[in-house]
C-alpha cells in the first residue's frame, strides 16, 4: 500500500487557485461558487451563514470553506444540483454565506439513516490539514436524535453541530458559527 501524500496548509492566498474572483482575479472560476441553487432548483431553498473563530475569539478572515451535501432527496449526482460549493470568509468581517437546498436524509450502506446535514471543510493559513465538520438542522430533533453520528456525541459537544434558525423574510436562514478552539470548540471529524 502506498503512503498517502501528506497535506500542507492552504495558506492565506488559497483564493487565487480556488476562488480567483475573491483574490481579485478575472481568470479561472468565474461562477459564484457559494450559490448552489438557481430559481427553479427543486427542494427548499435555504441560506447558511456563519463565522469561523480562532482560539482568541477573533474571526478568521482568510479561510476558504467547501460544502458537500446530498440533494433534496438524499442523493448525489442525480440531477443538475451540484451538491458542492465554495465560500470565502469576508476579508474584513470573516462572514461567509452559502445558498443551497435543504438536503434529504442519507442512507448509509449499513442501513442506518443520517439526518439531513451538510459537510463543511475548512482550508486556511495555520490549518495544516483541512478540518471537516457536519452541520445539522435544528428543525428536526427526532431525526437528529436517531442520527448515528450526532447521537454518539455527548450533549455538550453535539450542540456545536446544530445550526440555529435566524429570522429572514425571504428564505429559510441558518447560522452556523465554527469555533476552532475554546469551550465551544466545534466537533471536527477524521474524514
Amino acid at each position: 500500500m502506498l503512503p498517502e501524500t501528506p497535506a500542507q496548509t492552504a495558506g492565506p492566498y488559497v483564493h487565487i487557485g480556488t476562488f480567483p474572483y475573491a483574490a481579485g482575479l478575472t481568470i479561472g472560476w468565474n461562477a459564484r461558487l457559494h450559490e448552489l441553487v438557481r430559481d427553479k432548483e427543486p427542494g427548499e431553498h435555504i441560506e447558511i451563514n456563519g463565522m469561523i473563530y480562532d482560539g482568541g475569539n477573533a474571526p478568521v478572515t482568510d479561510a476558504m470553506i467547501e460544502l458537500w451535501q446530498a440533494d433534496t432527496n438524499g442523493g448525489f449526482h442525480r440531477s443538475s444540483f451540484p451538491g458542492w460549493g465554495r465560500a470565502v470568509s469576508d476579508f474584513t468581517t470573516g462572514e461567509w454565506t452559502f445558498r443551497t437546498v435543504r438536503p434529504g436524509p442519507v442512507l448509509r450502506r449499513d442501513g442506518s439513516v443520517m439526518a439531513p446535514h451538510i459537510m463543511l471543510a475548512i482550508f486556511a493559513r495555520g490549518v495544516n490539514g483541512h478540518l471537516s465538520t457536519l452541520m445539522y438542522f435544528p428543525d428536526d430533533p427526532d431525526a437528529n436524535s436517531r442520527d448515528p453520528i450526532l447521537s454518539a456525541l455527548e450533549p455538550a459537544r453535539r450542540v456545536t453541530l446544530v445550526a440555529k434558525r435566524q429570522p429572514n423574510a425571504e428564505i429559510h436562514s441558518y447560522r452556523f458559527d465554527i469555533f476552532l478552539q475554546g469551550d465551544s470548540e466545534t466537533v471536527f471529524f477524521n474524514i
Binding site: 458537500w68 448525489f76 442519507v106 443520517m114 478552539q181 477524521n190
Partner: peptide, 22 residues
Amino acid sequence: STLLRSPTHPPLAVGETIADLS
C-alpha cells in the same frame, strides 16, 4: 499561525459519512 487555529480535541473517528459515499 497554528497556535490559535488548531483544535484542541483530536479529530473524532467516525463511521461512513457522505464524504465516503460521493
